[in-house]
Simulated scan of single mutants.
Amino acid sequence: MALTEEHREKWLRVLGGYPDDEKPDPEHRLAVETSCSGFLGNMWTRATMPEVQGVSLAELETVFVQYHLSRPEPFSAAMLAAMTELADAPGGRRAAAKALERLGRLGVPPPSWYGEEMTLGECWKAGDVYGDQLTFFCSFHAPSGDQALSYTVDYSEYHFDMVVDCDATGDLDRLLELHRVRNAKSLDRLFVPVEADPAEVSAGTRRSLEDWDIFCVEGDARRLAPRFLMLRELWRARLRRFPRAEPAEVRQPSDDELSLFASGFLNHLLGRILLEARHVEAIRELCWFHGINGPKVSPTRAYVFLERWLPAKYEPGDPVVEAVRDLFIPFLRWTASATDLEPMAWPYLKFKAERWLDEFPSWSARDPDCARFPRPRSL
């Protein structure tokens, strides 16, 4: 759908509704960039939802530039200066730069930080010991002042990665200290911040930016973490200063790998339970799902398997479902040992799995497309 005058007028009203008493100081670079990023995040949610608007983000960025060009004041000049970095498309960044030049000819100069170099500083990471979640921390240096960003991602080899939190400040140590204190209290499932390679940061965040999980927010991008929407474009802009590294492809277990995995667990069960056909089928489901990208058990995998994968394939009363109930905790325990999960990380995983099993099978979500791999991008 092309940008209509109705859409254009709507967004001009939105941009014009920014309260004057909440506009940041044009000379405060991070505050201005955060404000600009927030508007772009708001526009992005609408551009990704054709049933709401169906207008591309590039078209909406044009409206943003036109609006601030028509208001020759320091705040508009600062927002355009931020757009030269934050606009999603190169064309949007060029349009903002040209608009800023025009404001300069009208007697409104750009902010003093415009055009200064922003260089990458330190990179750190913290997260859980299962590999379900990582928080990346990065510092950036510029003459106008340092910046620090954090970015927290929930990972799932089966579902798309989800951003659950972001932050921006001028003090990297403040961000790190919060995680050092909190994580040190839960070493059974969290690790304290350690230095990270910039390429790892790039690979660890790229998929969550490009393939946000429509399924987990029921198709409504506005239900994503608010601070992610506020800082998404700022993080994308800073990511251009990182060495580009692609995330690893999601790899299904081969027949040989699946057979080896299932055989190991079957041998473990011999003499412990009378195996029936339903148990064998349940074991195949367990091993296939938990064998993606190599055998691993974790709270996220357990939740997705019980609450998304099984409801997509089976009725609640299916014998395989009851067999999963019988085998799930023994399977997690055996796989945790076989994959060398830290022993102190087992109690929390067991606790979470048992809580989900209390209401299993709840079947609150039953979408058959969830059992397709890779999952359709339309979900």
Rank of each mutant, 00 (worst) to 15 (best):
R366W: 01
V280A: 13
L266T: 15
S362F: 04
L269V: 14
K98E: 14
S259E: 13
F137T: 09
N183F: 15
P295F: 03
D161P: 05
R93T: 06
V304P: 00
L172V: 12
V201E: 05
H279F: 07
P330R: 15
A338P: 07
R206D: 06
F160I: 00
A312R: 04
P316K: 13
T339I: 02
E61N: 03
R284H: 12
D188M: 05
Y158V: 04
W11L: 02
R182C: 11
R227P: 01
T4H: 08
D154E: 12
A262Y: 01
L349Q: 03
L224N: 05
L12R: 15
W212H: 12
E9W: 06
R278C: 12
A196F: 11
I283L: 12
G271Q: 10
R102E: 14
G170M: 03
G115W: 06
L120H: 10
R29I: 01
E354L: 10
R227G: 01
D256S: 10
R46H: 09
V108K: 08
L80E: 10
P24V: 04
F331E: 05
R333E: 13
D165Q: 11
H268Y: 15
S150F: 07
V32S: 01
R308M: 01
A277K: 15
V192Q: 15
A95I: 02
G16H: 11
H179F: 09
S156F: 05
P72A: 15
E218P: 00
S186F: 13
F242G: 00
L178V: 14
A199R: 13
R206G: 01
M344I: 12
V153N: 04
S35T: 14
D211A: 10
R333I: 07
Y18H: 13
Q252F: 03
A371C: 08
